[in-house]
Computed example of a mutant assay.
Amino acid sequence: MLIQKLPDTLKFHHLNVEYCPQFVEQRLSEGIQFPEFLHRAVLKRRCEFLAGRACSKRGLLALNHLPILELKVGEHNQPLWPDGIVGSISHCVGHAVAVVGRESVDLVGVGIDIERVVSADLAQQIGDHLLSKQEQNIAQTVFNYQQLVTVVFSAKESIYKAIFPVVNRVLGFESVELVKVNAEKGELVFEFCFELKQTFNHDITVYYELWGDELFLTWCCLAERDLCKLNLLGSNNINKA
């Protein structure tokens, strides 16, 4: 599968996940390293982890970057990328994706997320916790409620992954708010909360695609121009995760 509008500087890979010991063996035969803490994990967790790492390895190869044996895991479970590389990994039931690129002034962070559209019952249970009234009002003419809950959750996940190396902390769902939807372009525009506006100097755009009727893929990028001037000094160390 391909992503529309993805810059040539970013390499995207998708892998269907199968939940069987043979799938694990296939990924290990590719040279994907299995971290010690996952040796006793359930089969589902092992298959999805290895699939995500396989996608990231293929992305690194597409960049002509010699892949390291293992992407280590940070304290917040984020992948730790090689110097000069930015990337992001995501998986849901049956699918894993990754996007990687070379760090530059135009690419200092990237986030990607893939989610299955939630059930009607789950959407009702979690919708009010994930969405503000403004977000529900803005997007209700574009998406049904299940889609709305899913795509906004996914988009926020993509944003948090892209900006994590800058803020270096886990954020709540109220940290960004949907302010505009452009269905024709597949764009969601989010505004940062007051605190984050001290770090990021304007809104952030997330791109989304609906694969079939059940999968949302979202992604976004961060450039040096998106950072307030006071944060540019730290941009050389951005998104090593």
Rank of each mutant, 00 (worst) to 15 (best):
Leu2Val: 07
Leu2Met: 08
Gln4Tyr: 03
Lys5Cys: 00
Leu6Gly: 05
Leu6Arg: 05
Asp8Cys: 08
His13Asn: 15
His14Trp: 13
His14Gly: 00
Leu15Lys: 01
Asn16Glu: 14
Asn16Met: 08
Glu18Val: 06
Tyr19Ser: 04
Tyr19Met: 07
Cys20Gly: 04
Val24Gln: 11
Gln26Leu: 11
Arg27Ala: 15
Arg27Trp: 02
Leu28Gly: 02
Leu28Trp: 01
Ser29Asn: 14
Ile32Ala: 03
Gln33Trp: 02
Phe37Ile: 10
Phe37Arg: 12
Arg40Lys: 15
Leu43Met: 14
Lys44Gly: 06
Lys44Pro: 02
Arg45Met: 08
Cys47Ser: 09
Leu50Glu: 00
Leu50Trp: 00
Leu50Gly: 01
Cys55Asp: 06
Cys55Ala: 09
Lys57Asp: 04
Ala62Gly: 09
Leu63Tyr: 11
Leu63Ile: 11
Leu66Cys: 11
Pro67Cys: 13
Gly74Asp: 08
Gly74Met: 05
Glu75Ile: 11
Glu75Val: 12
Gln78Gly: 05
Pro79Cys: 13
Trp81Lys: 01
Trp81Thr: 00
Asp83Ile: 04
Gly84Trp: 09
Val86Glu: 03
Gly87Met: 07
Ser88Ala: 12
His91Ser: 03
Val93Glu: 12
Val93Thr: 05
Ala96Arg: 02
Val99Met: 13
Gly101Leu: 11
Leu107Trp: 13
Val108Trp: 02
Gly109Arg: 03
Val110Met: 09
Ile112Trp: 05
Asp113His: 08
Arg116Gln: 08
Leu122Ile: 15
Gln124Cys: 10
Gln125Arg: 15
Gly127Met: 12
Asp128Trp: 11
Asp128Tyr: 13
Asp128Thr: 14
His129Asn: 14
Leu130Val: 15
Leu130Phe: 14
Ser132Gln: 07
Ser132Tyr: 10
Ser132Asn: 08
Lys133Ala: 15
Glu135His: 04
Thr141Gln: 07
Val142Ser: 14
Gln146Val: 00
Leu148His: 01
Val152Lys: 00
Ala155Asp: 02
Lys156Tyr: 04
Ala162Gln: 03
Ile163Cys: 05
Asn168Arg: 15
Arg169Ser: 13
Leu171Ala: 10
Gly172Cys: 09
Gly172Val: 08
Phe173Cys: 07
Glu174His: 13
Val176Asn: 03
Val176Ser: 12
Glu177Thr: 13
Lys180Val: 04
Val181Asn: 00
Ala183His: 10
Gly186Asn: 08
Leu188Tyr: 04
Leu188Thr: 02
Leu188Asp: 00
Leu188Ala: 05
Val189Arg: 05
Cys193Asp: 15
Cys193Val: 06
Cys193Gly: 12
Glu195Ala: 14
Glu195Val: 11
Lys197Glu: 14
Gln198Trp: 00
Asn201His: 09
Gly212Glu: 06
Leu215Tyr: 09
Thr218Pro: 03
Leu222Trp: 05
Glu224Cys: 10
Arg225Asn: 12
Leu227Phe: 07
Cys228Thr: 14
Leu230Ser: 15
Asn239Phe: 11
Lys240Met: 10
Ala241Tyr: 04
